[in-house]
Structures are given as C-alpha cells and as structure tokens.
Design a protein around this nucleic acid. Structure first.
Lengths: 108, 108
DNA sequence: TTTATTCATCGTATATTTGCGATATAAATT
DNA sequence: AATTTATATCGCAAATATACGATGAATAAA
C-alpha cells in the first residue's frame, strides 16, 4: 500500500535517485538553464520564461532548493536564486561515475 | 488543477526530464546496476536482489522499458532483460551536454 | 500612509506513482 | 493431464506530485 521503501536501499542510491527526481520535470530543468544563463537569477524572470503560474514556479524552486541544487537569497522584495555549483558538480560526477561503472556488454 | 503542462516545454527538455524520471527511484537505478553486473538479466534474479515484491519489480521493469532504457525478451517461461546501451548513451550524453552548457559563475 | 510589487505559502483539486495481493498466462516438469 | 514455475497484468489503497487561485508578508513607490 505505497509504503515508502526508499530506506531499504543504500544511501548512495537514494541520493542519486533524489537528484534524478529533482531533474524529472521539464520546468525544473528549464529553471536550472535559466539560472545558468542569466546573471540576475530573479524569481520573476523565471516566471516570465515558463508557461506556469507564479505559485507553481515558486513550488518548483522550493523543490530544487530542498534537493540542494540551488540557493536562494532575499534581496529587498525580490528573491535571488542561483545554482549551487558545488552540490551540482557533486551529483553529476556521482551520476557519471555510476554510469561508467555499468559495464557495457549487450546480453539480449 | 494538475493539468499536464509538459507539452508547453521543448521536446528536448521533456525527453531529458523523462530520462531523469526513469532514474528517479532507487529501485530502478538498482535494477540498471544489476542488469549491468550480471550477464543473465533474468527477472527473477532482480526480484531476489531488491526488497520489493515481484509485481512491483515487474512494474519498475516496465517503466524502464517504456523509457527506452532497457530491452526485454521472453526466453521460455523466463524473461531476459538488458540495458539498451545505445539509448542509454544517447541520454547520458545529452544530459552531460546540457550540464556542460550551463555556464559556471556564482551569482549569490 | 496608502498603494503597488514581489514572492512564499496555504488550501484544494486532480493526476500520477508506488506497492502489493490476486489472478491470468504460458512454458516446463511430473 | 495435472502441477509447478516464472512472469505480466489487474485492481486497489495510499502517498506524492502538479497546478493554481487566494492570501499573507514584506518591501518599495506614490
């Protein structure tokens, strides 16, 4: 009955899965791309770019923040977001390492 | 009201997000690792390794198959699964390219 | 001080995912 | 032919995710 079985997997695996989950919605990838392109990182700019309501964008930003992929700072009445490159690199290299560890022989 | 807005994003973005979604559950990453390690690729072996019921594993296998990351063949009363390395490479390189395209300057 | 702007959060509706028992199907074994 | 084995699928329950209007809180502008 939809009990959460995540805890029965290794921490490593759960973390990789969480990283992937953060990237599992086109809006969130689009947000990361926007944050990387622009210097400004203002929430309103992201809302303008995406086909989503402000509340929805705010929610996606929160998820990216919870996943540790972005950081946020309040700047007056605006909110400045940016990618946490350190965390980002950590995750992508883990993911790449895992992919490389998968040996490469076709079996069927 | 949870309308699906995926179609309002570029095909590229949607595909990347779907790839990430396939990897967004520890069980599915574990399945990929198992498929990569073992030659045999029999469903039953995967069930033995994972802390999940057979029906659940079968469902995760189906999702990986739908995502195009694995292939499956019936071998008598058994089912042989394996990673579709071509598709896998295609996705991982797209993902890596996207990450590289994100320029790397901290803004806040 | 009043008003407008920017954003986060709450509440809610709906959709999707996760998990599994039960069952169906098809092949192998007896 | 009957039984066992291996797997897929159905149907259900619970949990999560998606989306947004409404509202609140805090700052900036008038």
């Amino acid at each position: 009955m939809a009990i959460n079985k995540s805890l029965e997997f290794s921490k490593e695996l759960v973390e990789l899965a969480e990283f992937a989950k953060a990237l599992s919605h086109p809006a969130r990838i689009a947000i990361l791309q926007t944050l990387a392109e622009k210097q400004m990182c203002i929430c309103g700019e992201i809302v303008e770019v995406l086909p989503l309501a402000q509340a929805t964008v705010s929610q996606h930003l929160k998820e990216l923040k919870n996943a540790g992929l972005i950081k946020g700072e309040v700047e007056g009445k605006k909110s400045c977001y940016c990618i946490d490159w350190e965390a980002f690199e950590r995750f992508t290299s883990k993911m790449n390492t895992m992919f490389k560890d998968l040996s490469n022989q076709q079996c069927c």
